[in-house]
Design a protein around this nucleic acid. Structure first.
Lengths: 188, 188
DNA sequence: GACTCTCTGTACCGATCGGTACAATGTCTT
DNA sequence: AAGACATTGTACCGATCGGTACAGAGAGTC
């Protein structure tokens, strides 16, 4: 029998990778059973809501990871430079230096966007707010802090797209490095 | 009968919008027949290679648009500031100020990437080279020009993702405006 | 050992997928 | 008018889609 909490997390992780690799509509039940090692019976027992519930929970799981490893440290930090460095390091780790795609960004671009619009918006909104508040504490005006936080999110997303499009992880690393400098620059 | 050149372009434009709206794998033949007004008979007469050929030609069509409206002006320009402003204006127009998604970026993120890897890479590579050469003529070092061009492409892609994720076209416009300033900034 | 209740493999469902076959229709040439 | 050829609608193909039904296996309790 499943150790409920633990196993479910592992299933969600496998689901996440399938969605990342094939997109929401492209992740067929066949692919999902292969990736998770679970038959349809188990799958629909764990997720009575089908694919949509799977994706919803995967997004929630991603959100939880970012809340714990990115947003909360940003909120609780008192040294902006260290906090930003930690965020960049966390992002670099999470996205495997550009080798791993952002599922949230992917969903945002696809047809499934409307179904998950709230989760998608929330993911970016909470990140931006947490980062902007930190930047504000470091001396930036409210609007400058918001703009820089927006720039940070957009740079990360763009770097992921371009790195994958050109199969060049260097793009991602260079973008993160430049971004760090831009975030830490003195107020204009 | 079809006026071959003209009608085909129109079909390709409709195809492009279907692919943009539903992704490559999500664009079913049913959706395609509805969007183009063409039955399967006509579709497979025009594109014997099926969906893959349709997507290939759509990508080629996009490439041709950028070659004409973006890359070539960049190459032939002698006033960098004007050329960059024109590029930004062209991009803003093409992407409907963030309301229209980049099909190339979308393909890059999805499972169809490998099938169209060459076209995807080419699209970004030619853009980056054209822009970097212009920046070089404006006094930047080779590596600086390359980095700034890379930054430009990635910013545009990221802005498209974030604007769509948050349903906020303002993000795209702000990103383009900031980008213009960054591209025109004096060498570091 | 019998009774629960959770979990899972398998067979099956109607719908839709991308693609093919082909007869009928239209249009141009002579 | 007749023949050639481009174009199209429709019926159909096997495969796969997401999802359901359900019998039975597995583990925990008494």
């Amino acid at each position: 029998m499943l150790k409920k909490g633990v196993e479910r997390k592992e299933v969600l992780r496998a689901l996440g990778e399938v969605f990342r690799a094939h997109g929401y509509e492209g992740a067929s039940l066949t692919l999902i059973t292969e990736a998770t090692g679970l038959g349809k019976g188990s799958l629909y027992h764990l997720f009575p809501g089908g694919k949509e519930q799977m994706a919803t929970e995967v997004l929630a799981d991603i959100d939880a990871w970012f809340e714990l490893n990115i947003y909360a440290p940003l909120r609780n930090a008192d040294d902006p430079a260290r906090a930003i460095a930690a965020m960049i390091a966390g992002v670099d780790q999470y996205f495997h230096s550009g080798g791993r795609v952002c599922l949230v960004g992917m969903v945002a671009l696809g047809a499934a966007r409307d179904t998950f619009a709230a989760s998608v918006d929330d993911y970016f909104a909470r990140w931006q707010v947490a980062l902007a508040q930190l930047l504000r504490r470091s001396g930036l005006s409210r609007s400058q802090a918001q703009r820089r936080a927006e720039d940070a999110l957009l740079t990360i997303q763009g770097a992921l797209v371009l790195a994958r499009a050109r199969s060049d992880a260097g793009i991602f690393r260079r973008a993160l490095s430049d971004l760090t400098a831009r975030l830490l620059a003195p107020p204009e």
